[in-house]
Amino acid sequence: MADFEPRIVAFLCHWCTYTGADLAGTTRQQYPPNIRIIHLMCSGAVDSIYVLKALIDGADGVLIGGCHPGDCHYQTGNYKARRRVAILKGILNQMGFTEDRIWLRWISASEGKLFADTVTKMVEELKKMGPNPMKQLWDA
């Protein structure tokens, strides 16, 4: 288990969090390379299907990053994301996943450091949680 390297899929909104992730690079913040970033226009455009599919296909965690409340470039996309994730977590619990595999975080374009810290933390937590149970199912 010591070698377990979680795989994280991240859906980041174009305006804030994706830019924040860029800023982490510009300012050379280091974080573990376990994350694959998918760029969407808004956190409100993250369909539950994407999250479910990611988990079913074996991702160990899903990070959704959007603008802080009040800062969504499409007014309310992040609030929609927040509601959606709350519902999703309920469904996931029923499916036997721990809801902590989905993280929804508000990270602004100036918070490169916060982005790096978030990923670092998420990797740590997922390591504690162990691999996505779905993966073992597939393997079996």
Binding site: A21, D22, G25, R28, Q30, Y31, P33, I35, A116
Partner: peptide
């Protein structure tokens, strides 16, 4: 493909994993 800000610059200590990403 953002392999600079979101890869090379943030995973400077592990060439192998960074390349994989």
């Amino acid at each position: 493909a953002n392999i600079r800000e979101q890869c090379a610059f943030v995973h400077r200590n592990d060439q192998e994993l960074a390349t994989e990403k």
